[in-house]
């Protein structure tokens, strides 16, 4: 049996590491502009958000229905979706690579990346 102090230190250390990693993911990936819309891992569209002059919408259909994607200068969101949970809609606008919009029922991912400095977020898994 380990002492309680050992477990507290272990978990506190894990918390600090995770907080640092979360902060790195949140802050590190800013200043990017190209939104890529993937479905099932395949690139459907790439929208350069800095080049958008007037907002527009398009729809993506998938196994669970349709997602209405709305683009405005510098930002993108899922405005409406047919899925029951509406997680992607509640996430609202994104304008940075902080957190991609993910619609699991429709296997849709909207991710913002910088073209000049292509940050590979999957390095985080290692």
């Amino acid at each position: 049996m380990r002492s309680t102090k050992f477990w507290i230190l272990l978990i506190a250390a894990a918390l600090v590491v995770c907080l640092a990693a979360a902060a790195a993911v949140m802050l590190g990936n800013t200043g990017s502009c190209v939104a890529r819309v993937y479905q099932n891992g395949q690139l459907l569209r790439a929208v350069d958000l800095s080049q958008v002059e007037e907002g527009y919408t398009f729809t993506v259909s998938g196994p669970a229905g349709e997602n209405l994607v709305q683009v405005e200068p510098g930002r993108i969101r899922v405005a409406a979706a047919d899925c029951p949970d509406q997680v992607c809609v509640h996430q609202g606008w994104i304008s940075t690579g902080i957190a991609p919009i993910v619609c699991l029922p429709n296997q849709l991912v909207i991710q913002i990346q910088s073209d000049s400095h292509n940050q590979q977020v999957d390095g985080v898994t290692g």
Binding site: V25, N40, G41, P100, L104, Q107, V121, V124
Partner: peptide, 13 residues
């Protein structure tokens, strides 16, 4: 499922 490794960026959060 999504075949998108970038989803792993959620993990620390």
């Amino acid at each position: 499922l999504t075949r998108t490794p970038a989803v792993a960026a959620y993990l620390p959060v």
